[in-house]
Computed example of a mutant assay.
Amino acid sequence: MRVLIATDTYPPDVSGSSFFAHRLAVGLAGRGHDVHVVCASETGPRKIVRDSGVCLHRLRSVPLLIHPSVRFVPPPGVPALLRRLVATMRPDVVHTQDHFTIGRAAVRAAKRWNVPVVATNHFMPDNLLPYLPRHLHRPVADVAWRDFRRVYDRADHVTTPTRAAANLLAANGFDGSVEPVSCGVDTTRFSPDGAPPGVHRRKLGLPDVPTVLYVGRLDAEKRLDELIRALPRVSVGDVQLVLAGTGTRRAELERLAARCGVARRVRFLGFVPDDRLPSVYRAADVFAIPGVAELQSIATLEAMACALPVVAANAVALPHLVSHGDNGYLVEPGDVAGLGAALDAILTSADLRRRMGGLSRAIALTHDEHRTLARFEEIYHAVARGRAGRG
């Protein structure tokens, strides 16, 4: 099939949505499809390039002020460009990953040329609200959900990564059918390799001590301050917290670690290239994710595929990956003492780590990326047949 994926965020942008869009595009191309992605230019000017078997139509972009690592495509000219692109390509399906500048223009263009639309939602206003004054949270969220509904109501098939994410859409007024389809994970590349964590810690230049790991953006909604404040509550005195990723809150987190007296035990790895990520997970004893705005969490899936127990916030979709007491622990958001106790329980018991890690791996296998790619192929064929029948 010829597939056009529309996304306002794509690597090198750092977000779960961009990583999913990239893996979907490359995975589909690897299965023999003609895949095109329309996304923001990573350098600014518009260009067309090929990467990993995918044709990238990168549109003129500027930096997004609230997320300097993400680029934004200004709306002027985008609708006309998408109309021309869809008219020229005549894809079998348009698959949008969001309802912003590129996504909404792609949906409109697809409807104009009678091309079926699949829409996947990775958005919730909670990712934006921490950057706004509190009195604006409710009105901004209402506007955001109304805007989302206006675009996604026009899709032929809507997906989102988890049942919790689908329920969230329904709770915010979206009355269409929504299918949960996991983002998926490469369970071959992300897997335990049998080597002790210390081997990988030494490769990364980290001390060989018990290690709590977080992978992702260092931004407000991730609530990483709770992890730092929980560290002194862990009885394993030499435990270290490793934070892999970049974001707007790094300097603030460094200052907090100093105030809590744990600066020497908090390691900032910065941006980690994708090919080094498996080794980062294998260097850890437990993965922790205290954020409350996760519609699935690709990083958590990768950690689980590497057989790590997980301590996660009991919020949104994380309970779909973490079964309390089985492959990890769920902690109420804001419960720093509970977070420290959960980490302590895992770090002080090798048997618990092995049992929980094995269950994490088993759960991750049910999210293997080949299942995700196969399901989207089925969805594409179904909507294409339906549109042909109506035509």
Rank of each mutant, 00 (worst) to 15 (best):
G53E: 08
C55G: 09
R58T: 10
V62T: 15
P63M: 12
L64I: 14
L65M: 14
I66D: 12
H67Y: 15
P68H: 14
P68W: 12
S69V: 08
S69P: 10
R71T: 10
F72D: 13
P74V: 11
P75D: 13
V78T: 04
L81F: 12
L81N: 11
V86P: 01
T88H: 02
M89T: 02
P91Y: 00
P91R: 01
D92A: 05
D92G: 09
V93K: 04
V93I: 02
V94Q: 05
D98K: 12
F100E: 00
T101S: 14
R104Y: 13
V107Y: 05
V107L: 09
A110I: 06
R112Y: 03
W113D: 03
N114P: 06
P116H: 01
V117M: 07
A119K: 14
A119W: 14
T120P: 03
T120R: 02
N121D: 11
F123D: 06
F123G: 03
M124W: 08
P125T: 08
D126I: 01
L128I: 15
L129K: 10
L132I: 07
P133S: 04
H135R: 15
H135A: 05
R138D: 08
V143C: 07
V143E: 06
R150L: 01
V151I: 10
V151W: 04
Y152Q: 12
Y152T: 12
Y152W: 12
R154F: 02
A155P: 06
V158A: 01
T159W: 03
T162L: 00
A165S: 10
A165E: 13
N167C: 02
L169S: 10
A171E: 04
